[in-house]
Amino acid sequence: MQGRDTAGLIALILAVVAIPLVIRNDYYLGVLIFTAFNCLTCIGLCLLMGYAGQISLGHGAFVAIGAYASGILTTTLGWSPWAAMGAGIIIVSVVAAIVGVPTLRLKGHYLAMATLGFASIIHILAVATVDLTGGPSGLLNIPRISIFGHQLNSDMQYFYFSWAVVAIGLYVAFNLINSRVGRGLRALHGSEEAAASLGVNITAHKIQVFILSAVYAAISGSMYAYYVNYIDPGPFGVMHSVLLVTMVAVGGMHNIWGAFTGAVLLSLLPEFLSSATDYLQLMGIAYQPDYDILVYGAILLLIMLFLPEGVFDGLGKAVRAGRRMIRR
């Protein structure tokens, strides 16, 4: 981990500790908890997109598998939430290997196509296998998770828990990037031929990071299930996978902090849009929640046109430019 990332991580931890002192409203804490889930998935996805140069349009499905593994194993088999989370991680790793091994051997974006198909298959399975998943009506009564025998009952406790997991996720990602394996990944993103000529096994590296990024998604899904205590196929459609990719791209895929920023911004955006609805109504514009998707599309388009390296990089450049102006 490098100095700047350590500083960022410490700042994040301080912010997380401080936020519940200011925000006591359970609704807003809930929004921030969902934000944490998206952050976790996006950190993993960023390792894949920004460092291995591959796109997955199926990370929503890995979130779903993590959530359903937790939901099914705890409710029907009575497993403890932690054991079910572990099982979810193992299942997702195996599934990711099955999807990744054949597609990542090929050059080009075959993984994107394979994962897109995979995401729809998982969504259909979640709807159709009623005996296992509860079908469209979903699974009820998923237990809450406990830490050292202490059940996380309040939103504030769950807020701390989920952001602690995000911090661990960041810590792991930064360690990985600045290690032998991470250098191999960044190298193959720079030039696959050069990396191979130095003995980096390109296929193995891509598969490993794909599995790791899927594990991030599985943990996120599992935590989602233990927080809302109820899952149905609704949130796990293909559009959710696309939204995750959008978050990473908007924030900036070449930097973990970029993906993190994108996940935070786009997770909070619906809240801003819904509060903006009232003002728009005063101006005589009837804003519907359905329009959210148009706003997302517009944001992605504008970012790709004007800040192709993402919001995070754009902010950094703006700050540097501002400093230069002041110095003059």
């Binding site: 981990m1 792991v172 290690s179 032998r180 394996v181 130095l198």
Partner: peptide, 19 residues
């Protein structure tokens, strides 16, 4: 990166311990 073949840290120990 050129030292890749002359070292062996895997993905797990890479992730858990800071460099």
């Amino acid at each position: 990166v050129g030292r890749h073949l002359r070292s062996k840290t895997g993905i797990f120990s890479s992730s858990c311990l800071p460099p």
